[in-house]
Design a protein around this nucleic acid. Structure first.
Lengths: 202, 202
DNA sequence: CGATTTTTTGATTTCAATCAATGTTGGTGG
DNA sequence: CCACCAACATTGATTGAAATCAAAAAATCG
């Protein structure tokens, strides 16, 4: 059995940063972690949002090239990479996570390169609604407008305006602070196959 | 020893496509391969440009979610994924390639989300100049303007305009069709540490 | 309850997209 | 060998989506 220890990190706390030596692997047990890069002049781009079950990175040696920070109160399992990979079950998990992350990043690249602001936000809310369910048809958005903007390659003003418009038009409903719902969910007139992103950005 | 067979693919020929079953792993021996995704309405985003030594993908089962096409005349080594991975040396290579691809994609995401057109092209030419060397300070660009644009999330007109400006200003020199050089290379007044991308986009 | 952070909203600007020709290059067959 | 065709590239004029600049309003926290 691969052994690990559990740690708790607070909202906003850095887990690791660019330039530091990669020693441990981290798996999210609860909460959410943002992974991001920062350019010399301070521009920030969030690469991914890791939720329960996700590994944060796949480095076994050398330095990190990015940052990891808790977006909410978070529990992490910490592993020693090289020794954990000797466990065939862990290796299989590691490889599966790797493939999932690569696929996620391909989608992210396609989104940033070819989609407009509305499509980006719609895609993002769809992803979040699948990963951070908080009730029937409702989901938690564990990020500020600035963080959403940094994920989508937009400004916080643009994100705020699109949220405002969708809420005004009733495409999106705020059920609690940080919690939203898309009313078309379960609406049989629209059909089960309707994607949230298609509905929102229509 | 992990066994493989060699195949040749012509410029423009598809190697695999989204929806097909992933059976084989491919390693580029010579030439260049573009990896891309296509949206329902035809918008295309190139995810990566694979050169000699690179694996094209890391799927061992299931369907591809993207396309691979030869950008030039290309030689590929084809492996059976599951059996190749039983070779520890191949597994190490596979993991290293995986990490390299993830890092590349993080940079790509950051570029698309936060950099302007000039910075994107400068970054790209820097990457290409390291991977496709064709002489002292010169490099081969194995792609059309449209392909460059599809990699950078721009239009071909925008790419063409920036190329034209840099060539006019002498920041970039065309040494042959499809081959360019950045004159600051080896210019001791600028210093060895000068990055091509910094110089071009300045 | 005051102070700070976060969000909203409005006015204006800007960079790249789009629309529209024109020019070049490379491959093919007469 | 050269003329022609198709793919590729350039260049210009104009538009448009999102960024930027600038306050004001809400939410969060000690």
């Amino acid at each position: 059995m691969t052994n690990s220890k559990l740690i708790h990190v607070h909202r906003g706390q850095e887990i690791y940063g660019a330039g530091q030596d990669a020693i441990s692997l981290f798996k999210v047990c609860s909460g959410a972690v943002i992974l991001f890069m920062i350019l010399e002049d301070g521009r920030r781009q969030i690469i991914d949002l890791a939720g329960p079950g996700d590994l944060l990175h796949f480095e076994l040696e050398g330095e990190y090239d990015h940052f990891a920070e808790a977006a909410t109160e978070t529990q992490l399992a910490v592993f020693n990479g090289p020794s954990a990979l000797r466990d065939p079950a862990f290796l299989a998990f590691f490889l599966a996570q790797t493939r999932a992350r690569l696929a996620m990043e391909r989608r992210h690249i396609t989104m940033l390169g070819r989609k407009n602001a509305q499509e980006r936000l719609a895609d993002f809310l769809e992803t979040v609604s699948e990963c951070f369910v908080s009730g029937p048809g409702a989901f938690e958005l564990p990020m500020t407008r600035q963080q959403v903007a940094d994920y989508l390659g937009l400004t916080l003003e643009t994100v705020s305006r699109i949220f405002a418009r969708w809420l005004r038009e009733g495409r999106l409903v705020q059920v609690a602070p940080g919690q939203y719902a898309v009313p078309c969910f379960g609406d049989t007139r629209i059909g089960e196959a309707t994607k949230v992103s298609t509905y929102l950005a229509a």
